[in-house]
């Protein structure tokens, strides 16, 4: 049995809604439960997909796991480090990429790679070798000296991806990895995730694209309205039907139950 690298126990996140937000969401409830007592594990060397519609709580869950926000209750461990009590240790073990994380427009990918390598405490010679490898793999060399402000969306995404992995983490967490990318860059990112899978890295992605999950993931957790509807291997979840059909079955069941 492979080792559990991410363990999530009753992870819950509640957001207090302002009067304005309540009006916008057409609700009288003062608290929104974005993640509701989530329990799941991600094993070493597997690709785990968190699948769900927009607003289901995928990004909130990943932000808690990456220690950007704190859970209201519950706990999670990344490679044995608690996200509540040891956030620094968690951050040193993961590479996290989300569209929320931006690179400073003034600097070049070359400078930013070195800067983030410093912050991650990567030795200079190791960082140099890794930069050469990653820049060449993603074709960044040709724009390594261009300020981020002057890069296209695809180039920026490539630079962000490489910089998020500057310290060669064992656990890689990607939030909507192909969102907003053109088909060429999306293919580069998907291929890279397949490479990570081949390298037996532990990868967790969140997405609402069924084909991406089917192509990449060993196991999948379907999250609807903050609750984990099902979490198992891809085959077990699908049960002989397509992932899309299975998802809408679960989605309709959840909506019926909520009435």
């Amino acid at each position: 049995m492979p080792r559990e690298l991410i363990t999530v126990n009753d992870l819950t996140k509640e957001f207090v809604l302002s009067t304005k937000q309540r009006k916008l969401n057409n609700t009288s409830e003062k608290v929104k439960i974005a993640a509701n007592k989530l329990n799941f594990s991600v094993y070493e060397g597997e690709v785990f997909g968190l699948l769900g519609p927009n607003g289901a709580g995928k990004t909130t869950t990943l932000r808690m796991l990456s220690t950007l926000i704190k859970p209201t209750s519950g706990e999670a461990f990344v490679d044995g480090a608690s996200i509540v009590r040891e956030p620094d240790r968690v951050r040193s073990r993961i590479g996290f990429l989300t569209s929320e994380l931006k690179l400073e427009q003034f600097f070049t990918p070359d400078y930013l790679f070195d800067f983030f390598a410093d912050l991650h405490g990567v030795p200079a010679d190791v960082a140099k070798a890794r930069k050469a490898e990653m820049f060449s793999r993603f074709g960044i060399n040709e724009f390594a000296g261009v300020k981020v402000a002057n890069l296209s969306t695809g180039m920026k995404q490539k630079a962000s991806l490489v910089i998020s992995l500057v310290h060669d983490p064992d656990v890689v967490i990607f939030d909507e990895p192909t969102n907003g990318l053109d088909i060429i860059t999306a293919k580069t990112v998907t291929d890279f995730l397949l490479d990570l899978k081949a390298e037996k890295k532990t990868v967790m992605i969140s997405t609402h694209i069924f084909s991406l999950v089917e192509k990449l993931c060993d196991r999948v957790g379907i999250i609807i309205d903050g609750k984990m509807a099902v979490c198992d291997s891809l085959d077990a979840v699908c049960g002989g039907i397509s992932l899309e059909d299975r998802f809408f079955e679960l989605y309709n069941d959840a909506k019926e139950a909520a009435k």
């Binding site: 040193s92 931006k102 983030f116 991650h120």
Partner: peptide, 17 residues
Amino acid sequence: GEKERGTIATLLITPIR
């Protein structure tokens, strides 16, 4: 400015205290 541009989050995700 860093908060507004979203670059502070990129710093906060690193292990720096």
